[in-house]
Write a protein that binds this DNA or RNA. Structure first.
Lengths: 169, 169
DNA sequence: GAATCCGCTGGGCAATCTGTTTAGCGGTAC
DNA sequence: GTACCGCTAAACAGATTGCCCAGCGGATTC
């Protein structure tokens, strides 16, 4: 699944001005409305665009502290740990990584003191052997996708040259 | 900054059905359209809702491999490393964490072989002393926010009871 | 006690956008 | 040469948006 120039421009435009409509997009991109609509449908049905959910800032919700916990899981307890951590609201993300029974866990908390409570709740589960936590201090590059989209679309990006592909209309 | 029940329901509804309009939301929530509109404006201007950008799946773009790299930075080189990593499209996120000059870096790549190229490009930078990489195998809990929103709003969540707050109309 | 502020309701308005269909065009593949 | 596919351009009714207003109830303030 690759995307072309137009797909890339649609995604980037959408990322920059999410409230924009299909009609306005077609004007900005200089193509027909039906084209944008068809492309958008295809991007969504092919899974490139998962959705347009609101991006909520945990800090603004009262959870300004973010941390990553590396968890070492007891053999065969992986499924249980997953199921348990799913029930903890402060667990925003959980990934299994290479290494024997390791998981990486993104947490938030109301304060450093509260983080202790969250960590206790997380590592208090039986299947977790050991945990090490790193508190996030700064976020120089917030989760982004635009540069990758530009590269995938062969767009000339701001940073780093895109690949030169044949421009078919 | 706290949110109330209605704010929480708005966010959750929006997360579940992003293409929904203000009018339809007001119907579902049983409140006036102006109320939803006002709440939404407030949530956005207060920063709780950052935006509605498209959620793009790197895998569908051709980058199915995700990894986390822990980088140890040479004293005083933090700013340079940040600036450099910003220019690498495959760097989706960069965080500074507790510990002496440590950064956590979320990467994607086209394949395991390609990951080597990306890592080389990342750790090839001068200010980086040491790097250790963990490849993501599974994603049991994709980045989520709904449970936290429900908790912050005092909503009875599916998993784990919310805190009981006074219900002020 | 009385005035004021604030958020929510319910209504209405013009302007815009959406979803959908149609026909035509050009390039590509078979 | 013919069929297929994506894009353009136009049209249509229906729905939604942004914006206005007046009224109401609760809470706060004087």
């Amino acid at each position: 699944m690759a995307i072309d120039h137009l797909d890339g421009r649609i995604i980037v435009l959408l990322a920059r001005e999410p409230r924009i409509g299909v009609l306005e997009m077609s004007r900005r991109l200089g193509v027909a409305r039906g084209t944008v609509q068809a492309r958008l449908d295809r991007l969504q049905s092919s899974g490139v665009i998962r959705g347009f959910g609101p991006q909520v800032d945990p800090a603004a919700l009262g959870y300004p502290v973010t941390a990553f916990a590396t968890l070492q899981i007891r053999q065969g307890q992986g499924a249980d740990v997953r199921a348990y951590l799913t029930t903890v609201p402060e667990v925003l993300e959980l990934l299994t990584t290479t290494g024997s029974g390791d998981m990486l866990c993104r947490l938030v908390a109301r304060s450093n003191a509260d983080l202790q409570r969250v960590i206790d709740r997380v590592v208090g589960f039986d299947g977790i052997v050991r945990a090490s936590t790193a508190i996030v201090m700064e976020n120089p590059v917030p989760l982004r996708i635009i540069p990758l989209v530009e590269q995938a679309a062969g767009e000339p990006a701001e940073h780093g040259p895109g690949r030169d592909t044949t421009d078919r209309g």
